[in-house]
Amino acid sequence: MNTTPRTVLVTGAAGGMARGVNARLARAGHTVLCADFDADGARRAAETIIADGGAAADFRVDVASAESVHRLGDAVRAAGHEVDVVLNAAGVLDRRYLVDHDDESFDRAIQINLVGPFRVIQEFGPAMVERGWGRIINVSSIAGVTGYPYPSYAASKAGLSNLGRSLVKDFRGTGVTVNAICPGVVDTPMVIDEVRRQVAAKVPTGQIIDPEEIGALAVFLITDDARNINGADLLIDGGATRFYELFD
């Protein structure tokens, strides 16, 4: 795909899924700003991109902290970067059922998965508006579409998808689009064997999602060919949302 090189801020860049995303972005010619709570992980992610011939830099951020997100903005600008694309991939999956949650654990998931992306968009979105171009890509989940046995994850991802749809009005006429990528089960170290077996048996394609598939869609959304894709939930799930009982 032909695309203008952009500067892409990826939160959660040290995670298993984001590494595939980082690779696809870098191969498409984009500069990847790797931000993560794990500073060493963010550094390694950037070093991997650079070793493969791409352009990258690393930053530490705790998206659950407004102050930390502001510091990230200051650090990115001080390093001379203008963020064209925000890709919110930072997230947490809390495998607790309703009766196991307390206020603190539930709030943590909401802060990282929903409030964090809001803070990052609020920090970097206005500059996109000033420049008349930008892309905001939120990594949501099919759990936000179908529900999920782990309520904090499902609720936060549903909120993230609806946040993106709602922000379309805020960015109307500015050249900035907002979309959500909603993956099914992605092939990362977090996926337990039982879930892999369920995917093979129940997902119509029988396949787990490769992280680079998420990256490929993100690369497309950055192109001008995707300029009229806005406010969308884009599913990469092998047809899993057609089977709500997938994780019963």
Rank of each mutant, 00 (worst) to 15 (best):
residue 220 F to L: 11
residue 159 G to L: 04
residue 137 I to H: 01
residue 245 E to I: 05
residue 189 P to H: 07
residue 145 V to F: 02
residue 77 R to M: 04
residue 30 H to R: 14
residue 214 I to R: 03
residue 140 S to F: 06
residue 120 V to L: 06
residue 42 A to L: 03
residue 218 A to Y: 01
residue 220 F to T: 11
residue 208 I to P: 03
residue 149 P to F: 06
residue 127 A to M: 11
residue 8 V to T: 08
residue 233 D to S: 14
residue 114 L to C: 06
residue 129 V to S: 09
residue 234 L to W: 04
residue 129 V to T: 14
residue 125 G to H: 03
residue 53 G to L: 10
residue 220 F to N: 06
residue 12 G to H: 07
residue 116 G to A: 01
residue 186 V to N: 08
residue 239 G to V: 14
residue 56 A to N: 05
residue 87 L to N: 05
residue 99 V to A: 13
residue 5 P to W: 10
residue 239 G to M: 10
residue 42 A to R: 03
residue 8 V to Y: 02
residue 189 P to A: 08
residue 210 D to R: 15
residue 105 S to C: 06
residue 247 F to N: 05
residue 231 G to S: 04
residue 54 G to S: 09
residue 185 V to D: 02
residue 91 G to D: 07
residue 206 G to M: 09
residue 157 K to T: 08
residue 105 S to P: 01
residue 224 D to I: 04
residue 102 D to E: 15
residue 125 G to E: 09
residue 79 A to W: 05
residue 88 N to M: 13
residue 61 V to D: 13
residue 41 G to I: 12
residue 225 D to E: 14
residue 246 L to S: 13
residue 227 R to N: 10
residue 146 T to W: 01
residue 101 H to G: 03
residue 89 A to L: 11
residue 245 E to M: 08
residue 139 V to A: 04
residue 29 G to F: 11
residue 40 D to C: 06
residue 234 L to R: 08
residue 149 P to R: 10
residue 109 A to V: 15
residue 42 A to W: 02
residue 121 I to D: 14
residue 160 L to P: 01
residue 137 I to K: 00
residue 213 E to N: 10
residue 60 R to E: 15
residue 65 S to C: 04
residue 114 L to Y: 05
residue 191 V to W: 08
residue 127 A to L: 11
residue 215 G to F: 00
residue 29 G to C: 12
